[in-house]
Design a protein around this nucleic acid. Structure first.
Lengths: 291, 291
DNA sequence: GATGAAATGAAATAATCATTCCGCCGTAAA
DNA sequence: TTTACGGCGGAATGATTATTTCATTTCATC
């Protein structure tokens, strides 16, 4: 028995229409169909190029659910739904390579006038440029051998303790979250209750301390690194240059050149480095569960 | 009988490499293979999204010829060749999702020979490229008018309370730090002691709640947003799309198209947006101390 | 022309895909 | 508690895909 097309489902022709329809009907969809809807809006490129079966794996639903989703939204089948995403992908495209080459020659510190700073749009565009420039620079300046050795030290450690404060605190929290999500034991030394030294004392002899600090070199963070080094613990760090007080204390150091917009530091390059460390470590652990 | 790989066929990694190889070897290819080569270079988008059979029809060759072409150029099969065209279309990315899907389907199949994933240098370069393309994308997709309105709401608020958890917690901490450093009063709702509702209760009537959450939509964060909205507080949010449970609760929403590499979320675009919000707000406060 | 190696296309095969079908489960009304 | 029902996931089905096989054609060389 052919189900009559859903009365509330209008004919959808393009991606924006689909998006609008999903927003309008989101609470009329079942739990699983909502899950599919979220995945489709969050990963439109994947939808454009992958098969239904593969998307089902990625979205963590059975294939049948995606077929149901397509029909529910008024399409004949999955192919019609996918066509919407493919059209979106093949529409307006940017010549990425050329723009990246242009950006590579740009100065690291992006200068914009005072008037521009009060315009959020200009600020945003300036930050995007600054972030791109700093990424292209660090791509060539990061010591890749040191990166590999850095990951090795973390792999050897039983638990990774992360010390980061003030501006770097968010990144430290991010790293702890990331390490945990790949199955690496990790603790954040957050100095809660001013108990940082107690937290350092809780570090085991086969553990590793990862220190993240820049520029103002938060005294508490430096103190943590010093105390740990004095105890003979392995210390690695992510910081800005060799003059950093934690560099001399560390077995391995990754130097991250920071881009700035005015006085404001962009944490983008450091963030990318942290991501790389986490994912590389995760991969290493997956390949050699016990090392 | 396994044919030995063509000695003149170097390993091809990207589209430009393929293009160069085709130009270099064009007279060593047979008539039909040249026909395929021309079609592939003239219609790269078609190659990226169509099946082998359909491409065979478009290029007016039998399907077998395209399989031969792929092998002749040193690929394992058509799928590997097509991957080059898909990467070109989508921008650089790591094939994590693909591998995770394979792993789920065949858990015992271990592919250790793949050094792209266990090599930290390769992972790093992949992340840099992914970050750059996501930045170039968000530069055009972010709603600049909404950004300005967003900043205005924060400017109007007496105190900004920030709710963010799990993967977004680090960014929330970063935002609170940034807001404080420009002189904006800010509190982080960190759910310490499971006292999030007490923290929400402490929000003043002229304050603003800034919610940051993506994709898995941490239930505690959503609950905070719901409670605040119910109390009539002003809520703004940074999230991934309109289906996010906090979007409907928010007076202003900034949508950040997040670039995921496999299961790992790149927070770079969101980070840049947050920086822009903070700096814009700081500038506005400096120009109009009392608003 | 005759010959053999390379190239080609049709057809067979195996793998994968999208869709449908059916039984199970949880929920809500009876 | 029982019953009815919608949603769900697994398995079967049929369609399509990518690859291999093999017979034929083409073409350079003798």
């Amino acid at each position: 028995m052919a189900k009559p097309p859903n009365p509330t489902a209008a004919l959808i022709r393009d991606y924006e229409g689909l998006r609008a329809a999903l927003v309008a009907r989101q609470d009329q969809l079942s739990r699983r169909l909502q899950q599919v809807a979220r995945f489709f809006l969050n990963h439109p490129e994947e939808v454009a190029i992958n098969t239904l079966v593969r998307l089902a794996v990625l979205a963590q639903v059975p294939p049948a659910t995606i077929t149901r989703f397509a029909k529910e939204m008024g399409f004949v089948g999955f192919a019609d739904l996918q066509a919407v995403f493919r059209e979106r992908l093949l529409g307006p495209r940017l010549p990425y390579a050329q723009r990246m080459a242009d950006q590579a020659a740009a100065p690291l510190d992006i200068q914009i006038g005072d008037d521009d700073l009060s315009n959020p749009a200009k600020v945003f565009q300036g930050f995007v440029q600054a972030a791109v420039s700093s990424l292209l620079r660090i791509e060539h300046s990061l010591d890749l051998a040191e990166l590999a050795a850095f990951v090795q030290v973390l792999a050897d450690g039983e638990v990774v303790h992360v010390a980061a404060a003030r501006g770097a605190f968010g990144m430290g929290a991010y790293v702890v979250y990331g390490l945990s999500s790949i199955g690496k034991r990790a603790h954040l030394i957050d100095n809660l209750g001013a108990m940082r030294l107690a937290q350092v004392a809780a570090i085991g002899p086969r553990d590793v301390l990862l220190v993240i600090t820049f520029d103002d070199y938060t005294p508490e963070t430096v103190e943590i690194a010093q105390t740990a080094a004095q105890k003979g613990l392995r210390v690695v760090s992510i910081t800005d240059n060799a003059l950093s007080p934690v560099a001399a204390l560390s077995e391995r150091v990754l130097f991250v050149t920071e881009a700035r917009l005015g006085h404001f530091r962009s944490q983008v390059p450091a963030m990318v480095v942290c991501q790389s460390v986490i994912v590389s470590l995760g991969r290493r652990m997956a390949l050699a569960p016990d090392a």
